[in-house]
Amino acid sequence: MKPLVIIEYCPKCGWLLRAAYMAQELLTTFSEDLKGVSLQPAEVSGRYTIYINEEKVFDRKEQGRFPEIKELKQLIRDKINPEKHLGHSDKQ
């Protein structure tokens, strides 16, 4: 079964647009590899956490920042399809 990416974001912080942008990028890049991307409003203020199924991939509070889209694509790729080439997102 294809994995589901969940982006948990803080609606009080106004991070819905950021989450939607990241979801769009992931769905475009991994259209054949993902079941989908779910946007989930967080119950805890300040939360911005990205999961693949139940596994945490990125946490804004732990990292002290938001992920760059290039970095996020690489993290997702490494978990779901390590052989996939990401084009310009693979360059250093």
Rank of each mutant, 00 (worst) to 15 (best):
K2N: 14
P3I: 06
P3W: 04
L4F: 07
I6N: 12
Y9Q: 03
C10F: 02
C10R: 03
P11L: 05
K12I: 13
W15R: 11
W15P: 09
W15I: 11
L16D: 02
L16Q: 13
R18Y: 07
R18L: 15
Y21A: 07
Y21L: 10
M22W: 14
M22D: 05
A23R: 15
L26W: 03
L26I: 06
L26K: 05
L27R: 11
L27N: 12
T29W: 03
T29H: 01
F30R: 01
S31G: 00
S31R: 07
L34Q: 03
L34S: 01
L34R: 02
K35D: 15
K35I: 04
K35M: 09
S38F: 08
S38I: 02
L39P: 03
Q40V: 13
A42Q: 08
A42K: 06
A42I: 08
E43H: 09
G46P: 03
G46D: 03
R47K: 14
Y48R: 07
Y48I: 10
T49L: 04
I52T: 11
E54Y: 09
E54A: 12
K56C: 12
F58L: 02
R60W: 04
K61D: 03
K61N: 06
Q63M: 12
R65H: 12
P67C: 10
P67Y: 08
E68T: 14
E68H: 14
I69S: 15
I69A: 13
E71W: 15
L72G: 10
L75V: 04
I76G: 01
R77G: 02
D78W: 05
D78G: 02
K79F: 04
N81T: 12
K84Y: 05
K84G: 09
G87M: 07
H88V: 10
S89C: 07
D90W: 04
D90Y: 09
K91G: 02
Q92G: 05
